[in-house]
Simulated scan of single mutants.
Amino acid sequence: MTPPSLIAPAPHRTSVQDAIVVSADALFTAEGITPVALDRVAVGAQVTPAELREAFPTRQALVVAALQYRHDEWMTALITAEASFEDPRDQILAVFSHLEDCFTDHSYRGCAFINGYGELGRLNPVVAGLAHEHLRQLEQHIAILCAAAEMPAHLAPALTLLIQGAQVEAAIHGNITPARTGRMAAAMLMSVYEAPSLF
Rank of each mutant, 00 (worst) to 15 (best):
E100S: 04
A156W: 05
S191F: 14
V168M: 11
P157D: 02
G44R: 06
Y69I: 03
H141N: 00
S197D: 14
N175G: 13
D25Q: 10
A55P: 06
Y69D: 12
A26R: 15
A81H: 07
L162R: 08
T76I: 02
N175S: 14
E31G: 05
A19K: 02
I176G: 01
L120G: 00
G44P: 08
E169I: 14
R59F: 13
A147Q: 07
L189Q: 12
I79A: 13
T177K: 14
Q164N: 06
Q46S: 15
P35T: 14
I7Y: 13
A66F: 14
M1R: 11
Q140V: 01
M188Y: 15
E100P: 00
Y193T: 10
S191D: 15
L123W: 01
V36H: 06
D105V: 00
A24G: 07
P125Q: 04
P49S: 11
Q164H: 07
G129T: 03
P196N: 14
G121I: 02
G116T: 02
S107K: 11
R70D: 08
F199E: 13
L130Q: 04
R109C: 03
I79Q: 13
I92N: 03
M75C: 03
R40D: 15
P57D: 07
T14G: 13
V64T: 14
D72R: 09
A94M: 02
I163Q: 11
L155N: 05
I20V: 14
A8C: 03
A55W: 05
V36C: 06
V168R: 09
I114M: 01
R40F: 05
G182T: 07
I163R: 11
S5R: 14
V95P: 00
E133D: 05
A77Q: 07
Q167E: 13
H98W: 09
A42F: 13
L145H: 04
S15I: 09
Q167K: 11
L99V: 00
D72K: 03
E51C: 09
H12Y: 12
D105C: 00
P35Y: 09
L62C: 08
R180E: 14
L162S: 09
A166S: 15
I20R: 04
V64E: 15
G116V: 01
A158Y: 02
V64M: 07
A94Q: 01
M188N: 15
E133K: 04
T29G: 10
H106M: 00
G118E: 03
N124W: 01
L123Y: 03
T160E: 10
